[in-house]
Design a protein around this nucleic acid. Structure first.
Lengths: 132, 132
DNA sequence: TCTTGACCCTGTAGTTGCTACAGGGAGCAT
DNA sequence: ATGCTCCCTGTAGCAACTACAGGGTCAAGA
């Protein structure tokens, strides 16, 4: 059994975040000590680790919730898990395409600017709606 | 002169967003009609277009505010504009590196999963903290 | 003329995923 | 007894919008 601070350290999670996960129902309310402190067992540690790893991989809290409920059911419904993961992957691919296009636009814009204190700023021009 | 709805259509911006920009001081409060409707001139259109284009390129509202104040001053301080743009570019590069690493992790995880209704789900395993 | 419908107004609350207090209590060391 | 670190609840804040609720305005059609 460990305190919320210890759990936070073990999972690299802020104490407030753990309480937040409890509040939104991702983590079950843990047992309390006489002094009303939360105490966590190894299962809670495993669950929070799972949540954090999923979050690190970019899953939304809703997706994490779905993944958790699938593992809670113990049905090992790999098809559904796979779909969630693949959906997420597709979104990541979209984001990559978007951000790379954006980088291209940005770099074109920046390159067209000499960078000095000139009277006509190409960056501002590039952002402006009309040719002036 | 155009209504807020017309301005929204012209700049692909929701009406609520325009009012929001006004509330946070990005857009000046426009003139009103007798019926208390906002009316926008071409300058407002140009300004909102600038904001939207900057936002599309991923600049934060704070960055947009800085860029706008630079253009408002008319000093054409290209050095500062360039710095803002380059800072933003560096952040984009960081994000690209992060998301590509993430894609790699995700795809490795997904590939290790057959995708059927098997008793052991590799994705869940990959997300779990302990080998089971 | 009346009515319908599209638009507009203000103000507030919700979204995501936390984070940061404020104002207090618990527990341990000195 | 005092200080210190941790913990508690509850609420408000962040970005950048978005979505109402509960009304007012205005132009067109029957």
């Amino acid at each position: 059994m460990r305190s919320i601070g210890a759990l936070g350290k073990a999972t690299n999670t802020k104490v407030e975040t753990i309480r937040y996960y409890e509040r939104i129902g991702l983590l079950a309310p843990p047992q309390r000590t006489d002094g009303n402190y939360r105490t966590y067992d190894d299962e809670a540690l495993a669950r929070l680790s799972f949540i954090r790893r999923s979050r690190d991989l970019g899953f939304s809290l809703d997706q994490v919730r779905a993944l958790l409920s699938l593992t809670d059911q113990g049905t090992q419904d790999c098809k559904t898990v796979d779909r969630i993961a693949r959906d997420h992957m597709a979104e990541i691919e979209r984001k990559i395409a978007d951000i790379i296009a954006l980088r291209h636009e940005l770099s074109t814009m920046i390159e067209s600017c000499g960078g000095g204190n000139i009277s006509e700023c190409r960056i501002i021009e590039a952002l402006s709606p009309f040719d002036n």
